[in-house]
Design a protein around this nucleic acid. Structure first.
Length: 97
DNA sequence: CGTTTGACGCGGC
DNA sequence: AGCCGCGCCAAAC
C-alpha cells in the first residue's frame, strides 16, 4: 500500500482524542484515496508497541469490528469512559468528529 | 499472473 | 432494525 496514504491514515488516527471514537469510513474520508478496507489493513499491519490509539476505531454501525484484539479494545474504551448501550453499540455522543 | 481474502460500507429488501 | 450481496483493493498464495 502507498506509503503516503498509510502516513495520512496514521496521522488522523493519532488525532483522535481520548474518550472519543471514529469509524474506518470516516478516517478513510479524511485521507486522499483511502477506503475503509485500507484503513483496516493499515491498523492490522501496525507493529506491536506503537503508541497509536488503534482501539478508538469502530465500524460505521458503532460496533467493534471482529478481530483478535476486540476484547482488549472493549476494555480500553471502557477504561477511557466510552459507554456502550445494551446492544453493544457506542453511544453517539462519543463519536469523533 | 489469476484467485482468494479480509479490523469495511452501503444500498436493497 | 438486521441481513445479504456486491464493490472495494492491496497482499498473500
Amino acid at each position: 500500500m502507498k506509503a503516503a496514504l498509510k502516513e495520512q491514515i496514521l496521522t488522523v488516527l493519532a488525532e483522535i482524542p481520548p474518550g472519543r471514537v471514529t469509524t474506518y469510513g470516516r478516517i478513510a474520508a479524511m485521507t486522499e484515496g483511502g477506503t475503509p478496507r485500507l484503513v483496516a489493513r493499515a491498523l492490522r499491519e501496525l507493529p506491536a508497541g506503537h503508541g497509536l490509539p488503534w482501539f478508538r476505531v469502530i465500524t460505521a454501525s458503532r460496533r467493534l469490528a471482529e478481530h483478535p484484539g476486540a476484547d482488549e479494545q472493549r476494555r480500553r474504551l471502557i477504561d477511557e469512559g466510552v459507554a456502550f448501550d445494551a446492544r453493544g453499540r457506542v453511544v453517539p455522543e462519543r463519536m469523533w468528529p
